[in-house]
Amino acid sequence: MTASPPEIRVSGLHKSFGDNQVLRGIDLEIGRGEVVCVIGPSGSGKSTLLRCVNLLEEPTEGQVFVGGTELTDPDVDIDAVRRRIGMVFQQFNLFPHLTVTENLTLPQRRVLRRGKAEAAEVAAANLRRVGLAEKADAYPSSLSGGQQQRVAIARALAMGPEVMLFDEPTSALDPELVGDVLAVMRMLADEGMTMMVVTHEMTFAREVADRVVFMDGGVVVEDGTPAQVIGSPRHERTRHFLSRLLDPAMADVEEETSDQVGKPG
């Protein structure tokens, strides 16, 4: 499937927080222009995996490569590598003391050392891309969650990334605002952006993703096309997760078996 070398390569990745083993050996490759959705129950380690890809979390063991550069090399210039990786957070994390435009121009000016005019031009272009040109002078607090998240995407795009990481980008949004953010993400996918998306939006995964990765208990359980993983899952764990996600009202009360939760007795 991937003729060119993979844009993102993760091998033998382990991550623990103290005694809590969150990732237990992840191997994953994402080719250039591929859109991969990572799904799984909460506590499965999918967000931690994403945060390891731009080293916001330091892996305990294993390697991460992005665009051929090893991020886990202790001597790597991590700030330089991160400029090529855009990250979108669940909580948007816009800079509240700056206007929308300044949110986009300050990183360009300080990190990429772009001139004032160029930064402003790039900012305006990216705000147009996400459909928020008219909010250029607003402060983040006056925007809706969906608008804030689109600004956050525009801010990441203004840096000219080769890879975009999305950490549950629609989970903090009111349901009616989810669509606008997903539309922007779909546009990026159509433009050929390499994307790794941690999400609970199954419709998005089914329609936009090239591949879906199902994680549980810190390992990749299933990895394949949306039709395979969502349409006809091979593993019981995947089936169980999907049935609960697609029809939460039908779930039965179950005994807790996850090792994340303290067992009674």
Binding site: M87, N93, F95, P107, V111
Partner: peptide, 18 residues
């Protein structure tokens, strides 16, 4: 200042001091 602010800045390529 929320932790996410530092994370957002770092993921945009800011050095810790900057």
């Amino acid at each position: 200042v929320p932790k996410g602010q530092m994370e957002a800045a770092r993921s945009l390529g800011f050095s810790p001091a900057r």
